[in-house]
Nucleic acid binder design. Structure first.
Lengths: 127, 127
DNA sequence: AATCCTTTTAGGAATCAATCCTAAAAGAGG
DNA sequence: CCTCTTTTAGGATTGATTCCTAAAAGGATT
């Protein structure tokens, strides 16, 4: 494991935040200013492939990375974009899977809401 | 409604396929060769906003458009990318929603599998 | 620590879906 | 027809991500 990959891995796993590649790049450069953007993307890809972190594709926004590697749903604020992890109740998908010809190899569940912070600050209409 | 938007709308709603903007653009140009790419994107956006069609964001691939406007899960082949609509069993999300502070404003559920066609053709490792 | 070989990096160019810009064309109404 | 507003074509631009290449770093083995 190179120093670069180690640093990137630590940043993703240090906090429950779901950061974008760009945010990770900025944080990493505080400690290693020579780090290249391409290196961040490549290593995030490698870490995802290795199953050490997860990539979370966002609607009309850059992807985010999640330190939690077990599959689980996400709760996303439609206004500010904040992402929270949820726990998947046992066998919730079973009824759906039952009707299929083959096995499910993975799933992705996103629930959208307006987070308490954004709900409080009602005023404008800016997304 | 302009002729352009009508054409785009008809293409999306004519078949259960989940086409990309580019595919829709190609099909539309067979009937209206002067149609601009930007017009396709803008009108797809307007149709989505109006709730007449749905946009389906794909992982590492261009978005696809769905004529079915009621929220529902999608079954996606990991190998060929084919998308199928599923029916959402009543209140499947209720147990999840129960633990939240506020109401869910929407959801997105993707199930991944290998479709029968791809499962049959086992050989290479492409994609 | 010198040698050889493989992998990774920095830096920047390239890609590609999607958006934006602007003058011209097309509705919409009266 | 004549104005006013909206939409379009066409191309430039953006922004996230990937790709390219020579240089640097690892990593064994002595």
């Amino acid at each position: 494991m190179t120093r670069q990959r180690e640093l990137i891995y630590r940043i993703v796993t240090a906090a429950p935040e779901h950061r974008t590649a760009e945010e990770i790049y900025d944080l990493a450069r505080e400690q290693m200013p020579s780090l290249a953007r391409g290196t961040v993307y490549r290593n995030l890809g490698l870490l995802v492939q290795a199953g050490q972190i997860r990539k979370l594709e966002m609607a009309d926004a850059p992807a985010r990375y999640d330190r939690e590697r077990r599959p689980h749903p996400h709760l996303i604020c439609q206004r500010c974009g904040r992402v929270e992890d949820l726990v998947m109740p046992e066998a919730l998908l079973a009824p759906l899977e039952a009707g299929l010809p083959g096995p499910i190899t993975g799933y992705e569940l996103k629930l959208y809401h307006i987070c308490p912070a954004c709900r409080g600050a009602r005023k404008d209409g800016a997304r």
